[in-house]
Design a protein around this nucleic acid. Structure first.
Length: 370
DNA sequence: CGCCTTTGACCCGCGC
DNA sequence: GCGCGGGTCAAAGGCG
């Protein structure tokens, strides 16, 4: 109890204090990269990511995208496809077995004002393609990369098949299997669902995680969340918070916790798919345009408030030359993530032979500065 | 008053 | 079967 409170203090938790958020938002920095060896069950890296090396990077915003899957993920047509609905097969246990490279972001971002701009500017043909990525020491991962993905789970593989389903919900359904329909009403009745069949493992919603270098734990992503739980995390001084989207009928959840290795890194894990547009488009926030497919909403959990990230958008890559720096530029005030469903950084990377270059496990050992 | 967080208890799955 | 740990519930209280 007391310990938990202490943890809260330690981790500079300011979950819903707008004031504090305002104070600290500028401290939030974002870098997106893909990684692997992420233990989704524990929201931790199976293998601690190598340290970033440059002091520059240390100054950069940090968002690390992570995801796991137990089943071959559906089409990866864009970075935004890496949202829960499309990417992560949702079995927690299996998911914990390994982490898959899904955030295939690695590209010369050129003049893109931001990560999001970049995505907007780089249409990629990604449909009807199949991609399999099997982290393996002997595989295509270049050891020159600073990435050092210790394949904690050699068996884990991201099979990204593609069928570019324009209906986001349908895409989501692709991930679902069999009895998952039962899950629809699991939210309220979970507790009463004792008579759950023994052999029916509870299927988890697809999940998507990313890491954010921020002093703010609960990032404002444009949606309204209600905290419904907090648990101490084993082997971590920081607690894990559980949030649920407050919109009626929307069962999207997210977990937020700090990296035990680097307290400046917040690991946010989204689970599920929004069935509504972002209720909030606060000034400075990147709004999400949900389309009729609902996919926009589905991917909206990736929304990053402009106010928090506009200072820098940085993307790690194993190759310094591939780093993008977007300094003091702002994200598009409104970005429709779903609008690039045919764009695939993954395929782009594939086309450019960069897929394996992406830095995964690197971020955890960023030089601690505190 | 409504919405939110806090927090102890409970449920559930898994490993031993 | 038991214990552990993750995840969730729901009552209580805080806050605007």
């Amino acid at each position: 109890m007391n310990e938990m409170k202490e943890n809260n203090n330690i981790s500079s938790v300011c979950t819903n204090s707008m004031e504090k958020r305002e104070e600290k938002k500028e401290l939030t920095r974002t870098t997106i990269l893909k990684t692997e060896n992420f233990d989704m069950a524990n929201s931790s890296f199976i293998t601690p990511p190598p340290a970033t090396t440059t002091s520059d990077i240390d100054q950069m915003p940090s968002v690390y995208a992570l995801s796991t899957t137990a089943t071959p993920p559906p089409p990866l047509n864009s970075i935004f496809d890496m949202m829960p609905c499309d990417i992560i097969g949702g079995d927690q246990k299996a998911g914990s077995l390994g982490f898959i490279d899904l955030l295939d972001i690695n590209q010369d971002f050129g003049t893109a004002a931001s990560l999001f701009d970049w995505f907007a500017q780089n249409p990629i043909v990604g449909s009807q393609q199949q991609q399999t990525f099997v982290p393996s020491p002997a595989s295509t991962l270049p050891e020159t990369s600073e990435v050092l993905n210790n394949p904690a789970t050699p068996n884990s593989s991201a099979s990204i098949s593609s069928s570019s389903n324009e209906a986001g919900n349908d895409a989501f359904q692709q991930v679902k299997t069999g009895d998952q329909e039962e899950e629809k009403d699991h939210d309220k009745t979970k507790k009463q669902l004792k008579p759950k069949k023994k052999n029916q493992k509870r299927q988890r919603e697809p999940r998507f995680a990313f890491m954010t270098k921020s002093e703010v734990d609960h990032l404002d992503d444009g949606f309204r969340w209600r905290k419904y739980g907090q648990k101490a995390v084993k082997n971590s001084p920081y607690p894990r918070s559980y949030y649920r989207c407050t919109s009626a009928g929307c069962g999207v959840k997210k977990r937020v916790e700090r990296s035990s290795d680097d307290s400046s890194i917040v690991v946010t894990t989204y689970e599920g798919q929004h069935i509504h547009p972002s209720p909030i488009t606060p000034r400075g926030s990147i709004g999400i345009l949900a389309d009729s497919t609902g996919f926009g909403a589905a991917t909206s959990s990736f929304v990053i408030p402009q106010t928090q990230y506009q200072q820098h958008a940085y993307m790690y890559s194993s190759s310094p030359s591939l780093n993008i720096t977007t300094t003091n530029t702002s994200f598009s005030p409104t970005f429709s993530f779903h609008q690039r469903r045919s764009d695939s950084p993954a395929s782009l990377l594939r086309d450019h032979g960069l897929l394996q270059d992406i830095v995964p496990s690197q971020m955890r050992k960023e030089p601690k500065k505190e």
